[in-house]
Design a protein around this nucleic acid. Structure first.
Lengths: 224, 224
DNA sequence: TTATTTTTGTTGTATAAACAACAGAAATGT
DNA sequence: ACATTTCTGTTGTTTATACAACAAAAATAA
């Protein structure tokens, strides 16, 4: 069992608790029945159809947000890591079932907060709750913008354009033309909605043409 | 010039102001420097690169959220109508430029609220602000879920699957197997990221096979 | 009404991507 | 160290879709 205390310093830096002092943070964690859950590679954290009333904050590890299409194809919506939230939109949308799966892709620690418990207790009256809801609003905003970017990525018409758009966006996020990506080839293909082998082929073509260079998960955009 | 007073009754029903009494609503509208803007078909309400610090609420008409890809292709992210918000995520993400265009597709009235003005004035202290931020959180949650659904739509591998997924989702939203869609054929193609003519062809094939029937913008899902 | 523009449906052709099958490399386990 | 599994790249074939060009229908304007 992981001790909450060992993670205070990290939790403090999370956007969820931005702007709170130590006292407010500790109060909130208590009022929220905060606890830590550990997931192993492949574990389902959230399943399609679940009703979500907890705030999930990833402390370490990595999580895929996925959706299985009606015809059995896997769609990766996004990959989340440290200090990011899972399924926050379903906390905000009461009475809406989760329409995604959240799957741990490595050993993952998640901080779980019972949102319901707190809101029913303090009726949004306490200052820490006010700060919190403000933070959640900002976090969701950011998620929203990233979803739009994902839509841009997958909406390109060719594999080549999808790759270039995705890699450019990643470079911009990392503020460098040289960066690591989080996906392996199969996951990247499922994220961009293309066939893995066709994508591999296109990647090496891009490399031969001198547009990019890569090695395993490290990529570099080359200026012409 | 449109008079704000004429829209009170409608504005009251908007999710943005859910749970407020008349007094709170009027106070808020004042504190937010509320005003109404009219846009004609084709007008740009928001452009890529804009910094957004206003809350936009559509009072009537329709708006496309679009993105022009690097290579000049048009991507339709979503179509918004009455009582929906524009670009709310950019209000929450301070210092992030809008990465989309918002284009009026018919005569449209928009209520504009200066979010900055209010937050700097009342420091989130007043009750109406507390209600508001709670509402915004819920609205963003809903938007988020719809973006995920859009990703599901465009992530299907064939035109046929995209159409069936899209139409099923629409039917579910409208709680009926018989419904109107908001897009014309070209817009629907840009929304699903497919070629219009190929899509038209697939639509008539689906009709011949007895899976759906349609006439102009009215569609019906037929049970087998 | 007639003329003009916009929207939608249809067809043939060229092309890009899915799919399948496989080999080599890398990672993992024993 | 070896065996086993997973991951990645390559190729040929099949298939679906983009694209172009056009006709019919509907909407709009004169």
């Amino acid at each position: 069992m992981e001790k909450l205390e060992n993670f205070y310093n990290q939790i403090k830096t999370s956007p969820v608790f931005y702007g709170m002092n130590d006292e407010e943070l500790k109060g909130l964690l208590e009022c929220f029945h905060a606890r830590i859950r550990r997931y192993e590679k492949g574990d389902m954290i959230i399943r399609q159809g679940d009703m979500i009333s907890n705030i999930y904050l990833i402390l370490s590890g990595g999580v895929n947000i996925e959706k299985d299409s009606y015809w059995g194809r896997r769609i990766i919506i996004s990959r989340l890591g440290k200090n990011e939230n899972l399924a926050l939109s379903f906390v905000g949308s009461k009475d809406v079932e989760a329409n995604i799966d959240a799957i741990s892709v490595e050993d993952t620690l998640v901080l779980v907060l019972s949102y319901e418990k707190c809101t029913s207790m303090c009726q949004n009256a306490c200052t820490r709750h006010k700060i919190l809801i403000n933070n959640l609003f900002q976090i969701l905003s950011k998620e929203n913008i990233e979803l739009i970017q994902k839509i841009e990525n997958v909406s390109q018409k060719s594999i080549r354009d999808k790759l270039l758009t995705y890699l450019s966006n990643e470079a911009q996020k990392k503020h460098s033309n040289s960066f690591d990506i989080q996906f392996n080839r199969q996951d990247l293909a499922d994220y961009l909605n293309v066939d893995r082998s066709a994508m591999s082929f296109e990647l090496s073509k891009l490399q031969k043409e001198g547009l990019i260079s890569y090695n395993k998960n490290h990529f570099e955009l080359l200026s012409t």
